[in-house]
Design a protein around this nucleic acid. Structure first.
Length: 273
DNA sequence: ATGTCCAGCTCTGCTGGA
């Protein structure tokens, strides 16, 4: 079967529910993973998703900040809500998609942005971000198949990871080296997470590393497309067991121009599973 | 890099977070 999965930092699911519905009608992903829903569970707009066929849902939200949700046409089991770095701040949920004999584990992540000052000694938010990366790298590493095992688990991790790891994941590598999201310490930790189970960077399977690729443009730019100062903060990672199943990717840049847009656009990938 | 958006509270302006 074909399986399409999209990830989108929506920056308030209630405020942008009409954009979400429009996107779902346009691209019809089988699974949508949202971050920054900013919505306590009792107010989550379940009806909108139910009406579009997303009858399987796992939401974990809180007041004002953070919040993640998995909305799916494909049934899933193993609804896991993970607490990270000793906090209950709604940043990691995991399901097992019922796709054939062997389910696919799907992680939806909202990694802390990290504040403005890239120094963990003076900025607790940056320290939290680095700790989150270390914890995730270890958690995935603990799930890596033992040496000699035939093949690993089919696993996909998506979300706003708040790091643009490659030189051409930002508009200016040089000018962003000291800007949170592209500092060497963050890029190193992203690499450690990626190496934990030899994750495949799905969009980069299709777009060479010397080509610019972004999923986020700051609200602080008056004309985001004229300056095009973007960053690739939103990611889709696939485990090696899915390497042969990757079929396509799409980053819907045009959505940054929709009325009342999020500062992030959706990133989607299709697999033949 | 600059500087805009969102949620919450209450206060229809301000604050913190991104």
């Amino acid at each position: 079967m074909s399986l399409s999965i999209a990830t989108w930092n929506i920056n308030s699911v209630r405020l942008r529910i009409n954009n979400v519905k429009r996107y779902l009608r346009l691209r019809k992903p089988d699974v949508l993973c949202l971050q920054e829903t900013k919505c306590p569970d009792e107010f989550f707009p379940h009806k909108a998703f139910e009406g579009l066929g997303y009858t399987h849902r796992l939401v974990q939200g809180m007041k004002s900040y953070n919040g993640v949700a998995i909305l799916s046409k494909v049934p899933f089991t193993a609804k896991n809500i993970h607490h990270r770095c000793g906090k209950e701040d709604c940043r990691h949920i995991e399901v097992a998609l019922e796709t054939g004999a062997d389910p696919i584990l799907l992680d939806n992540l909202y990694i802390p942005a990290g504040g403005d000052i890239p120094d963990p000694a003076v900025n607790d938010k940056f320290a939290h971000k680095l700790d989150f990366y270390r914890e995730m790298a270890q958690w995935f590493a603990d799930r890596k198949p033992k040496a000699g095992a035939a093949k690993g688990q089919r696993r996909i991790a998506v979300g706003d990871l708040n790091v643009a790891p490659l030189e051409h994941d930002v508009w200016s590598h040089k000018q962003l080296l000291k800007i949170v999201s592209h500092t060497p310490v963050e890029v190193e930790l992203f690499g450690r997470l990626k190496a934990s189970i030899d994750w495949i960077d799905v969009p980069r399977r299709f777009v060479p590393e010397d080509k610019k690729l972004y999923s986020w443009w700051s609200y602080r730019n008056n004309d985001w497309s004229a300056s095009n100062r973007g960053r690739r903060l939103d990611h889709i990672l696939a485990s090696p067991a899915l390497s042969g199943a990757i079929r396509s990717h799409r980053i819907d840049v045009d959505l940054r121009d929709w009325k009342q847009a999020s500062d992030h656009v959706p990133v989607m990938a299709t697999f033949e599973v």
